[in-house]
Each structure stands twice: as C-alpha cells, then as structure tokens.
C-alpha cells in the first residue's frame, strides 16, 4: 500500500469539494481497500462519504423505488419493498459476495466495483485498464472467466457485479450529483464498454457522486428472478448469470426484461431475447428459442468458448423459472 490521506465528509457539500480536488470517494471500502493493498489503486486522498444522508429506500411517485447510494447490499436485499417489487434485485444481491461483505458494501460502491480480471489485479502484468497502453494480458492469456460480449482488443474484462445485471435488465437510472448539480443517467449508459479506453469505466464527471439508483415502475404482475452459475456455490463471481423479469397477462408476455452477467464487459442487456418473448405465449419451446439469441455477437476467447452455450442455457433456465414450465 502507498501512503494516502483520509478525510471524512460530514455533508454532501464537503464531499463534492473534496471530490473536485481529486479525492476518491470511499464508503464500504470492500473493493477499494483491497486494490490499494495490491497497489492497483493508489489514490492520494480518500474521502469517506459514509456519513452522507444517502441511506434511504423510497417509493417514487411513479411507483418505482429509489435506493440511496449508501444503502448496504444486505439492507437493500432484505428491504420489504425491494423483495416485494423486484425479487430479481434481492436475489442478485443475496447471491453476491459473502454476508460480511454485503453488510459493508454499498449499492453505489457495488456498481463502481472494478473487474476481477486477474491481470488487472496483478501490477506486474500488462493491463490497459490499469495502465493505458501497456496491453491486455488476458486477450491471449488465461481467460476462462473473461467476457465474450462487449470486448475490444484492448480489454476483455467482465464487470463483476450481480445487482448491476438486474439494474440493467430493469432499466434503472443512476442519480448523480456533481459540482454542476444533479443529473440522471440511464444505467445502460452509466457503465462503459472498454473500446480503446478501458480505463474509463463509468460515465462520471470529475468529482461527481452517485446519490442513488432508481428502479422504474413496471406493469404488474411481474415475475422476476436471478440465476447465477458458478463453480462454487457461494462467495464467487458468476461464470454466467441471468436477470429476468416478465409481465404476463392473458397468457401473453407483455413485457420482458432480460440481462446477462459474467459474460460482458458491462452487464449485458439481451434485447434480442426480449424481442423474441414479447407478444408470445410462454412455452418450453419459446424459452429455448428466445435463449438462442442470448449470445448474439459473442466473441469467445481461447478458454471461455463454453460460455456461449452456458449463457444460452442459463437464460433458458431462468426464463423457465420466471415464466413457468416444467
């Protein structure tokens, strides 16, 4: 670890001032501190925002939910409103990390977490995300866990968050506060694909602070859930995952929200799968047919070819779980 200074912001104004001066925000610290220990992250100043009033979960006027950035993963997972309205969110959170980490980590921090790519986390390896221009060791290296979607020749790292997959599926909105005031960004635009600048991971402006994530009101009844496929049954990141929400009325799928995790450089919205589903009647055949589209555009690497098929089957399984079938 390298030396750094640490300040505690007592209110939003103080935080923003420190952020404008180049301070890095820290809340639960479950990712940042690890990376600082590995010297992957070397912030000069940490601004602790834990005391900021961003810990509420509120129902919005439109009937959605807004989750404060500092709500702990464990709090969000067990919140009655979240459980009732968006089981997919609860499940994604509860399948993440460990109980200890979920008690510390925040929703804002979760969507800011950085990739588990082992080359990114090993400062002696080449990584364009960590050191722009140094190269991507994973592209032709050991890449079983890496992305098959949204990759570039400069970066093939997956985004590790589970709940971000659910946010992507549900088309959440990120609320931001910066030196120039408030703004909102659709979740799909918040996390950036690597392109030629994998070091830029979020559409954040300098000093900007996440204040919350808003989940839109969705037509009811809504069946939703999250499936996480991984080697180990707990405390591990996804090989593949699927977040699915279906609104079925009169025997017809009226709304379908589907996204995949563990496979993309960002949580991957499966628009083609959604299109296959909308307007059709649930059936085994439909789940299979729709899931066939899950890996459209996939660019597998040497060690992760299996993810193409596994992704399709993961989506198929979760469509069946959410939409019914044997």
């Amino acid at each position: 670890m390298h030396p750094f200074s640490y300040t505690r912001a007592s209110d939003t104004r103080e935080a923003l001032d420190a952020g404008r001066d180049g301070g890095r925000y820290i809340a639960g610290g479950t990712t940042l501190v690890d990376l600082m220990r590995e010297t992957v992250e070397r912030p000069r100043t940490l601004v602790d925002i834990s005391a900021l009033p961003l810990r509420d979960i509120v129902v919005t006027r439109r009937g959605g939910l807004r989750v404060g950035a500092l709500v702990r993963m464990a709090e969000a997972a067990t919140h009655r409103g979240v459980r009732a309205l968006y089981p997919v969110i609860s499940q994604a959170l509860e399948l993440s990390a460990s109980a200890q980490l979920r008690n510390m980590a925040t929703i804002g921090g979760n969507i800011m977490q950085r990739t588990r790519c082992t080359y990114f986390r090993d400062v002696s390896a080449d990584c364009n995300k960590r050191e722009p221009g140094s190269g991507c060791a994973a592209l032709h290296g050991v890449n079983r866990t890496h992305a098959i979607l949204g990759t570039s020749d400069d970066c093939v790292a997956t985004h590790p968050s589970d709940v971000a997959v659910a946010f992507t599926a549900l088309e959440a909105t990120v609320h931001l506060l910066g030196p120039d005031g408030k703004r909102t960004v659709p979740f799909a635009d918040f996390l950036l694909k690597p392109g030629s600048t994998p070091n830029r991971e979020q559409a954040l402006r300098r000093g900007e602070l996440i204040t919350g994530v808003e989940l839109p009101a969705l037509p009811r009844p809504l069946k939703s859930g999250y499936l996480k496929v991984r080697d180990r049954q707990s405390y591990e990141f996804a090989l593949t995952s699927a977040a699915v929400a279906l609104h079925i009325r009169g025997g017809v799928i009226r709304e379908a929200k589907v996204a995949a995790g563990g496979v993309g450089t960002v949580p991957w919205k499966l628009a083609a799968v959604e299109r296959e589903l909308i307007g059709r009647r649930p059936s085994e055949a439909l789940w299979t047919k729709a899931a066939e589209r899950a890996a459209d555009g996939a660019r597998p690497l040497r060690h992760n070819r299996f993810k193409v098929e596994l992704l399709k089957r993961t989506v198929e399984r979760q469509l069946r779980v959410a939409g019914g079938g044997k």
Binding site: R116, T118, G141, D231, R232, S234
Partner: peptide, 25 residues
C-alpha cells in the same frame, strides 16, 4: 493452480480466484 505459460506467472495466486470449497459446497 493456473499458470500463464507465456511468462510462468500464476494467475490465481489468491483465495478469491483459487477456489476452495465453502460451507455451501
């Protein structure tokens, strides 16, 4: 234990990436 044979580095030299069973397993 996974080695990158290009340069002989172990790529999962930590307990997050080298998986040992947890209670759930």
């Amino acid at each position: 234990t996974v080695t990158d044979h290009r340069d002989g580095r172990i790529v999962n030299a930590n307990l997050a990436d080298y998986l040992v069973p947890v209670n759930a397993d």
